[in-house]
């Protein structure tokens, strides 16, 4: 924190943070995997062999082809096709875009809102705390699935039709975020209440630090550990909830499938021998979730000053 330190970048390179990153091979691999899945998803329109959203190019004649290497496979469809003749590889690439967007955006909003509420609630207590926590109770009392149903109903009624397709994504993010921020809030609140009584906080108060400064500089870093645990798990959960929601018709439309939707649809074929429509999307999801979580683990340990 000293004023005459070398450049910030140099400090960063020299830090324990970067050191621990370099040291952990698992983290390195996990990061590479995550980054490549994100890149592949972002670049889907350029690298995917087909455009699964363009229904005019789908043909039932190509439906349920096995992967290219299996008997009866078609080299045009590396990982085979689904029951509509959609290329599974392309569907996974495009689907990952949607799943990642739902996951990251909803976790971001939920985390920011939840941590803020938790800090304020835990630090100030009293009436503010009571109000926030009762709102939290209300939110937690509703399964995400139902909130999504409600939100999507309102949205469909209120917005013009052209926006529905885009709205589906926003609805999902909103529904997941509004039901998950509470977890962050409750956890942070609990930790904050403990930290508030610690000597270092009292000391900071005595030297006249403002509440905001104490919260952000002292308490926040100390309560982030459990938050990151929840965040990494919730990223996976958001993607899975999105899959579950598609059961009720409030997930992504069938013509615009996410990774979760692909698994949901493929799941119906588990007994019928058309394994590739469920195995490949599931594998992608498992690898993605695993990589994100491993990164999260490392991040948590690296960011926690007490673990140094």
């Amino acid at each position: 924190m000293s004023a005459d330190a070398p450049s910030r970048f140099a400090v960063l390179l020299d830090s324990d943070f970067v050191y621990s990153f370099r040291k952990s091979r698992v983290t390195l691999i996990a990061t590479l995997v995550t980054v490549s899945i994100i890149m592949a998803a972002l670049l889907a329109p350029w690298i995917a062999p087909h455009d699964p959203f363009d229904v005019a190019t789908l043909s039932l004649l190509d439906s349920e082809l096995p992967p290219a290497w299996a008997e009866g496979g078609d080299p045009h469809f590396l990982l085979g096709t689904d029951n509509q003749g959609r290329d599974v590889l392309s569907a996974i690439l495009y689907g990952s875009r949607i799943s990642l967007a739902v996951g990251f955006v909803s976790v971001f909003f939920a985390l920011v809102a939840g941590v803020a509420v938790g800090l304020i609630s835990g630090y100030f207590g009293g009436l503010v705390d009571a109000i926030f926590m009762r709102i939290a109770d209300v939110m937690l009392s509703f399964p995400t699935i139902l909130v999504a149903l409600l939100v999507s109903g309102i949205v469909r009624g209120a917005l013009p039709r052209e926006m529905h397709e885009n709205a589906a994504l926003a609805v999902l993010v909103f529904a997941i975020a509004i039901t998950t921020w509470v977890q962050y809030a409750r956890t942070v609140r609990g930790s904050t209440m403990v930290e508030r009584g610690q000597e270092y906080v009292l000391a900071a108060r005595l030297v006249g630090r403002s509440s905001a400064s104490i919260i952000f500089r002292h308490i926040l870093p100390n309560v982030m550990g459990p938050v990151l645990v929840i965040a990494t798990i919730n990223l996976a959960m958001a993607i899975l909830i999105e899959a579950t929601l598609s059961f009720l018709g409030v997930g992504m439309p069938p013509t615009n499938p996410s990774l979760g939707t692909l698994i949901r649809v493929g799941n119906e074929y588990l007994f019928s021998g058309i394994w590739w429509v469920v195995i490949f999307p599931s594998l992608t999801l498992v690898v993605l979730v695993l990589a994100v979580n491993l990164m999260g683990d490392w991040l948590r340990d690296a960011l926690n000053p007490k673990l140094r």
Binding site: V55, A56, S59, N83, T255
Partner: peptide, 14 residues
Amino acid sequence: DEEICQAVTAMWAR
């Protein structure tokens, strides 16, 4: 039902 509708949507798109 949903699969039929998807197939019909593709055929109309053409």
